[in-house]
Amino acid sequence: MATTTSPAHGASPLSGSRHFVNRADHGDEIARVITFIFAASVVLITLLLVLSLWQGSALARHKFGFSFFVTQVWDPNAGIFGALPFIYGTLVTAVVSLLIAVPLGIGAAIFLAELAPARVSDTLEFFIDLLAAVPSVIYGVLGIFLIVPLMRSYIEPALKKTLGFIPLFQGPAYGIGFLTAGIVLAVMIIPYIISVSREVLLSVPRDQREAALSLGATRWESTWKVVVPFARTGIMGSIFLALARALGETMAVTMVIGNTPQISASLFASGYSIAAAIANEFNEASSPLHSQALIELGLVLFLLTFILNGIARLLIIATSQRGSGTANA
């Protein structure tokens, strides 16, 4: 660290205490200014990011206005850019992933927080943290080489046979598509749901559980009817957090969704997501309008995750305050 050599070091004892205090204050001022510059640069970078997305998409925003969000056609050659298929693909895959990840994640969180002994719980949480660290491109590799063939030969035909009367499960089974992308996403977001929900469940005051048990509730009834409702907002927070992750996830989805800008009722059909479109087309954008439309997609993605993260944070803070508030009372 550059600041370790102190100006006060060389001061002779004769220079007087007044001098010393002055110089020390001076050093504090310098340290304050230096660290302030770094802190301010964080704010500056964030503002710059928002600004560059906003300005970078100006052309597309003016040209298409609101119709950008409702147009189904994405045709770079004709210069027509509509974001609807991408927004649809992003939302559908996110919803599929939540349907799978939420029950599994909350179930696991309940086990870790309520049942498992502290040592077991901490060990499992350690593995869950490692799972959260697995890079998304690796999920993509497993997705195309394992899950896609599995979906194509077994799961999708089986779904078609049993649930084929629902439009969601009709059409040819290629293996790639919304359903596969949703499943891969689900595996990726489960760790986030588990970690945050476990924390929130652990913050529920002990007397809540004891009161329920003393009234004759079984262990599950005390958990499901007392503890989980108490932690409800925080668990919702973990779900929003996971949803934000799912929406912004790029590589794994790009590798298994099929990359066809279309809207289809079937989950077996291939589609496209916002992040995948940017990843695939940004480098090869054929015209300024094309790259601006892609940046506008980035802006949409940014706003979506911004809102969801904001809601998640509020919900999580609300529960942890409620938990500690009651514990103190």
């Binding site: 301010a40 964080v42 990011l49 560059s52 997305l53 934000a244 929406l247 790029t250 992040a275 940046i295």
Partner: peptide, 29 residues
């Protein structure tokens, strides 16, 4: 160590916002 609460709030908010930005959008920026 140094910050008042207003500035701290702004910096924390910006950092959390930056943390939530999807990585592909970071790429565009």
């Amino acid at each position: 160590e140094f910050s008042g609460s207003a500035m701290a709030f702004v910096v924390r908010y910006a950092a959390d916002l930056l943390n939530g930005v999807p990585s592909i959008v970071i790429g565009i920026f």
